[in-house]
């Protein structure tokens, strides 16, 4: 490739790009937990590369969010604060983010793989001709300082390493729940930088007519989980009884979420969250690959299913072939009757 051809293909001088950016996703002042997970993980990357760690946030009235990002280790926070950004829309977000990337030239940009992150990331990567790796579950850098982003493909049967050698920034969306967020430090000694807002309402091509957001439960931190699947047939009661007895958080398969029985914030799997509890009880869940991908990091897995051939039994430590409507309450009773640990 000649230099001219290379430039036409979007190839850039990679040495002009540095710093590790993390997008801090907030809606109405609430930050998505994955953003803090990324900030913790990116601190290690930035240290390894000798780069600054920069948090970027877009929205309205972001002082508290910016402050917390500094407390959580960002060297700098870039803020684009304007009513045009609340509530979230892909077109103004993408436009603003792209302008910031093109002006400031970060080397790495990490975005939480939420519906929001996956919605706008392409609107940055496409015009910037950046590499965008999807659904990353492992991050590292090679000897040359190149980002190695690993992601599951083919329903989780394969872990592929994706590289972005000649384009910048190296962008990636990261699956929620795979990294752990560190606690904030007390002092915040970085700086807050206000970015120029490049978007105007008159240029927007979409409009949010209605927005209803309620359950934003974070199941990724739970120590115990009772997850329900299509087998519950719309009746959450037995699972809730078991969850209460075990002091566990409720989660669900996509099938149960799609039926509207459980909110999407509680979905486990490829298009939901990755969880890592000590105990994961799968109730009326068949064990599809896309579900297993989100629960494989659990320590002990228990399956309750009335089909002895359900694949979930192969992916569980303990299983019972039983009707969930009988087994859940019975197990709940047994757990509650359990004598508490005797202190000697």
């Amino acid at each position: 490739m000649s230099d001219d051809e290379a430039l036409e293909n979007g190839v850039v001088d990679v040495d002009e790009y540095d710093d590790v950016w993390v997008f801090i996703e907030e809606h109405d002042g609430d930050v998505m937990p994955v953003s803090w997970e990324l900030l913790s993980e990116a601190k290690g990357l930035a240290d390894e590369l000798g780069d600054d760690l920069v948090a970027l946030t877009i929205g309205e009235e972001l002082d508290d969010v910016a402050e917390e990002a500094l407390e959580r280790g960002a060297d700098r926070v870039l803020v684009a604060d304007d009513p045009v950004f609340e509530p979230y829309r892909a077109d103004p977000y993408g436009e603003q983010f792209r302008a910031m990337v093109e002006e400031r030239k970060p080397s790495i940009v990490l975005i939480g793989g939420t519906h929001t992150g996956r919605d706008f990331a392409g609107r940055v990567a496409v015009p910037a001709h950046a590499g965008l790796t999807a659904d990353v579950t492992e991050l590292g850098v090679d000897d040359d300082g190149l980002l190695e982003a690993r992601r599951p493909a083919f329903g989780g049967d394969v872990l592929a390493t994706i590289l972005c050698e000649e384009h910048r920034p190296q962008m990636a969306t990261i699956r929620p729940g795979v990294f752990e967020a560190a606690e904030p430090e007390d002092e915040a000694d970085g700086e807050v930088v206000e970015a120029d807002v490049v978007v105007e309402e008159a240029d927007c091509i979409s409009e949010v007519v209605e927005r209803e957001v309620g359950d934003t439960a974070d199941i990724t931190e739970a120590d115990r989980i009772v997850a329900v699947g299509h087998g519950i047939d719309g009746d959450l009661e037995p699972a809730l009884e078991l969850a209460e007895a075990l002091d566990a958080e409720l989660a669900a398969s996509r099938a149960a979420v799609d039926e509207g029985w459980v909110d999407g914030a509680r979905q486990v799997g490829q298009t939901g969250k990755t969880v890592r509890p000590e105990l994961y009880v799968a109730v009326g869940i068949s064990g599809a690959v896309q579900h297993l991908e989100g629960m494989n990091k659990s320590e002990t897995v228990v399956a309750i299913n009335n089909d002895p051939n359900a694949p979930i039994f192969e992916h569980a430590d303990y299983g019972i072939v039983a009707d969930l409507f009988e087994a859940c309450p019975a197990l709940a009773d047994r757990v509650e009757a359990e004598p508490q640990e005797v202190v000697q």
């Binding site: 049967d157 994706i162 494989n296 569980a316 303990y318 299983g319």
Partner: peptide, 21 residues
């Protein structure tokens, strides 16, 4: 801009698979 640098088959997580009645 991206390329697949390598692919590894993921080994299934070892589970006890003890089924009771």
């Amino acid at each position: 801009p991206t390329s697949v640098g390598g692919m590894e088959t993921v080994d299934p997580v070892e589970r006890k698979s003890e089924v009771v009645d």
